[in-house]
Amino acid sequence: MMGWMKVIISSCILQMKQSFSRAMFRYCVLIDPILFALITYVMYKDSGIGNFALYVVLGTGLSSLYNTICFSSAGDIERERFMGTLEVLMALPSRFRTILAGKVLGNTLLGLTSMTIAYIFVRVVFKAQMDIANPVLFMISFILSILSFLAMSLIMAVLFTLSRNARGLMNCMSYPVMILCGLFFPIEILPSWTRPFSYILSPTWAARLLHASMSGIDSYGRFALDMVLLIAVSVIYLGIFVILYDKIEKKIRVGATLGVC
């Protein structure tokens, strides 16, 4: 038990040090949320929508968090492959998925900075009023959302292990999630056929919970249902990760394609 905890913590700390030493990562965490908050705030400013600051802060924060995790998960695998260390990590006595979990955790912790920056920027620069109506439920929703993002990024990381086009894939995974999960606008404005795609993505439920707990909950029954669905989707993600990981590990060992650039 303690063994894998040690591996996760070491991997997490190393990942945070390595990630933050890259200028591009610092850009994703520090600059990108500010520019995106600026764009969306100015777009919403004269919209007449009452609680639009919530969309700006939650949308920017969640999308930055998602981008940080997603881009890093993809980029880290590609970097390890490029440096020739992916095979070494795979051959270590510690399981690769434990190391991967540590990496994803490190990225997530750093990604939380972007949420904070988006909040401070909108609060300070635009002097937007944002009170959290239900702080306790907001914190619970927030923690569940982060755990869910962790599960989602584990799947991505393991899929990127298989793909040699990780960079191309990661570049086109950002906007679909922002659209389908309703991070900046409600998913109800999208065509109804997109709804199933929205429902299988955990950021949809995370955004709903965070939005409701900040702006005020109309129906606690609905809120509880959203929370249960977020947990259920996250558990399914973890299950998929475990199954995928075993299959992909076998596939890359048999095919000897791990380090092929």
């Binding site: 191309g168 906007y175 659209i179």
Partner: peptide, 26 residues
């Protein structure tokens, strides 16, 4: 594959995102 993802799929999604946002906001 990389070309299609980067030059066709990604820009179209970006376009859909901002147009949907504009439709909702305005």
């Amino acid at each position: 594959k990389v070309y299609i993802l980067t030059k066709i799929v990604s820009p179209i999604f970006q376009l859909i995102f901002f147009c949907s946002l504009a439709r909702f906001a305005y």
